[in-house]
Structures are given as structure tokens and as C-alpha cells.
Write a protein that binds this DNA or RNA. Structure first.
Lengths: 241, 241
DNA sequence: AGAGGTCACTTGTATTAGAGTTGTCTACAT
DNA sequence: ATGTAGACAACTCTAATACAAGTGACCTCT
């Protein structure tokens, strides 16, 4: 049984690679050739096998490196649902159910730190079918110049005139309440995904709070975990007090 | 492994930045170049990496300064539920409900690409109260050396002997089925969070598939979105076909 | 006190040079 | 078909140097 040297070397290198993070640069072909006691051509053959397998890649003048995204964008790649709909040629529709200025519920007042808020409740449809009931609270000051027509035409964040930074999003399950069941066209007490989102401006102050209710089975969240978390349980899950 | 100097320096600077407030001015390129013993070009390349990451910015004639927010922790700090429990002094308990080798269900066979699998169904408890029913499927080959006792004592991923890379996690809502309701101690047909996770090894091959069922109101997911996504709807949500 | 100029220091940009790397080719041996 | 040896081109990284252009502090003159 004759052994093919460059295949041996490919195997050896492949096993080393498992212990190396993405983006890491390998020793040069010259170094590897002296280390293995073979010519540069043989080393290249082995590396080219690994390249075909998608494990490594090379740039002329730079070197060989472990393939895979160099951990840049962590969860940017999730994408928004508007993007998904657009790609499928579906224009999302918004129907305003309620629109009024009022005193904030306790929880909202705590989060936003104000008493008077604008509350907008909307039904979102895709392809004619309802798929979300969204309630947004924002400080009355910020929402003063908004009309019912505005929020029906354009997404909320565009009209606030505040630079936003990020958000914290909580995802849970629940039974749908009567009003939402009617809006979504689902049986009473059927399961829904209920999200709460707190959006903050560039200075970290919460400026927007929203609740999103989605019917189960029509919607789900997808999260990419680029690095293996040492847990059998889903990352990000937490127990409610 | 070879080292690229400007990447090292970028790493070093990045770690220093975490201890520095927004707006702070960095030492000049000249100072940094003497400190690190490299040329100004190399320092600039490192700083430009950090600029691309949004960590710092520069004004000609003024200097480099820390941009906007620390923004650091992408989702690393979300932490696992084990960590949360540990911090609260609670030791998680695992109870194996089922443990057997069998032919895979259709969906599992499709994902893992094998017919014979090891299936383990476990009940997780915290503080004596059940909070999750987890079912794990893995190729029979990989699970051959595992015993029922093993999976009760230690988490799964530790014992596979395979280097893992990451996972795709899908979160949805559902009504609990009869068996799970009994295990979790919740009323029949009450809402639950249902997760499906596909874990892949360093070469991108799926090696583990698992389903996690959590009772609603006791559990929820938290996702930090560091950058403002231009969407009123939660990031990562998708419509089920 | 205010206006304006000067000067040291900073980043932005370009050029040169050398060492090191991959990409590709030819010739030759097993 | 597999492997070795060598050569060259093209590219990258880093150093060294120079100059343009912006910033901010200080100084001087009115």
C-alpha cells in the first residue's frame, strides 16, 4: 500500500487546523516544506486540497489562512423581516388600530422615564395576511409632530429625528389575548411569540419601547451563533424571576 | 503560526480601549510607533482596523479618539443559562428520561445526513423546578461510547470529542404536548417556547441537533442588538413558510 | 481685550526600498 | 502519476522619509 505523501500532509494539517481560530495565518510554504522535509510543490498540493475543502484560503504575497469570517459582524447578518419580504416581492402593509397621547402604563413609565407618551398600535400584514400586532410607546415630546397618517405610511424610527444606537430585545411565549386574537385571525388562547424591545439613542437613553405579538407557527426567530458556546441550552435564554 | 504585526497591535489597542471612555484622545501615531517599536505605517494600519470596527475615529490635525460608545460586548456577554444559575448559587440538575439508539426521524436524518442516531431526552431542573425538556440527536457513530450515566453527569458537547464551531438556533412558540406538559408540570396545551438548534463542527458539518421546550412565563430570550437596525420589527424574526 | 500671525504638533498621503510570501512555470527523477 | 529542485513574477508587509493640511496654543500688535 503506497502512501501518497501530500495526502498524508493534508491530513496532518487538517488536524492541526481544528485547534486554530478563523483568520489565523499558517506558516509559509517554505517553512512547512522544511518542517515536513518535502518540497514546496508537495506542500502546495496538500494546501490546495484543504482549500478545495473550504478550510483555508490564500492571498498572494500574504499567506495561507484559516477560512471563515474573521469574526467581524456578530449578529448583523440576521437581517430584518422587511428585507425578507422585499426580496420575495411582498410589500408590507401597516394598519393603524389606535393612535393617542396618554399617560404611560407603569412599566413603560419606568423604562422611558416619562409620564406622557404617544401610543401607537398597529397591525402588520404581509401578502394580505396579518402576522404581527405591534404597540409602540414613545415620549410625548418626541412624538408631538407625528400624525396618524405618518405612522401608517412610514416606519416609526425614520420620523423621530433621533439617532438610534441599539436595542435590547426579549422574546417569550404567551397565550394570545382576545383583542389580538381577533386582529391576527387566530383562535382564542392560541400560542404567540411576544417580544418586548427597548430602543436606545446614541447616548444610551431609552427612547422607544415596543411590544410585538406574533402568531406561533407562522413566525420564528433565527439566531446565528458564530462561535460554539459551551452550553447545551440556547444562548441568551434566561429565567424569568 | 505566523503573526501579522499590525493585527497584534490592533488587538492590543482594542483591549486598551475597553478601559477608556468615549471621546478620549489616544496617543499620537508617532508616540505609539516608538512605544511599539514599529513604523508609523504599521500603527496606522492597526488604527484603521479599529476605525472600520467603529471603535475609534480621527480628525486631521487633532488625533485619534474613542468613538461613540464602548459597544464592546456583542453577544458574548449574554452568557449561558448555566452561568446565570451558577451565579445565583443554584446547581442545575439533569434527569435522563430516554436514552436509546434508533433510526432518525425524517427531519433529523435530513439535517444530520445519517440514518442511525443516538437520541437522548432529558429534563432540566433549576432549584428543583423543571424548566426545560431537551431532546438531542447525534449520529450513532459519535455517540457510541456514551452511556446513560455520562449524559446525566456532564453536558453533551464535552463528550463528543469533536471541535464545534457554531450553531443556528430557531426560536418559536407552540402549545405544549401531553408528555412534555406532564414533565414540566404545566397545564395541557399551555404555551411554550420551542427551540431547534443545529450545531456544526469546524468544517461546517452538522453534528448535533436538539430541540428545547421551555414553559412560557418562566423563561425568555434576551438579545442585544448593538447597532440600530432600521426596522420596527424584531431582528431575526422570519416568517415560516 | 480683541484680532491676527506664528509655531509645534497632529493626521492624511505619497514614495522608495527591502524582505518575505504565494502563483506559476520549466526541467528532471522516481 | 508523484515528487524534487529551481527560477521568476506579482503581491504584501514593514520601515523610512517627505510633504501637505488641519488643530490648538501661544504670542504680538493694535
Amino acid at each position: 500500500m503506497r502512501t501518497i505523501r501530500y495526502q498524508q500532509i493534508a491530513d496532518e494539517l487538517r488536524s492541526r487546523l481544528s485547534a486554530v481560530g478563523a483568520g489565523e495565518v499558517l506558516p509559509s510554504e517554505a517553512d512547512l516544506s522544511t518542517e515536513f522535509g518535502v518540497s514546496r510543490v508537495t506542500i502546495r498540493r496538500a494546501l490546495e486540497i484543504l482549500r478545495d475543502e473550504g478550510l483555508v484560503d490564500a492571498r498572494q504575497g500574504f499567506g495561507w489562512y484559516v477560512a471563515g469570517e474573521p469574526l467581524r459582524q456578530h449578529l448583523d447578518e440576521l437581517g430584518t423581516i422587511e428585507g425578507q419580504l422585499e426580496r420575495r416581492g411582498i410589500k408590507p402593509e401597516r394598519r393603524v388600530i389606535e393612535f393617542d397621547f396618554r399617560t404611560a402604563p407603569k412599566r413603560v413609565a419606568e423604562v422611558l422615564g416619562v409620564e406622557q407618551v404617544l401610543r401607537v398600535k398597529r397591525l402588520n400584514l404581509a401578502d394580505g395576511q396579518p402576522f404581527a400586532v405591534v404597540t409602540v410607546w414613545c415620549p410625548a415630546e418626541l412624538g408631538q409632530h407625528l400624525s396618524r397618517h405618518d405612522v401608517e405610511q412610514r416606519p416609526f424610527y425614520e420620523m423621530l429625528g433621533v439617532a438610534l444606537r441599539g436595542a435590547t430585545q426579549t422574546i417569550g411565549a404567551d397565550s394570545v389575548d382576545g383583542a389580538d386574537a381577533k386582529l391576527l385571525g387566530v383562535p382564542a388562547a392560541s400560542p404567540v411569540l411576544r417580544c418586548e424591545r427597548i430602543t436606545t439613542d446614541t447616548q444610551g437613553r431609552p427612547v422607544l419601547m415596543s411590544e410585538h405579538v406574533f402568531p406561533a407557527r407562522r413566525t420564528e426567530f433565527v439566531v446565528e451563533l458564530p462561535t460554539a458556546e459551551p452550553s447545551v441550552l440556547p444562548t441568551g435564554l434566561r429565567l424569568v424571576e
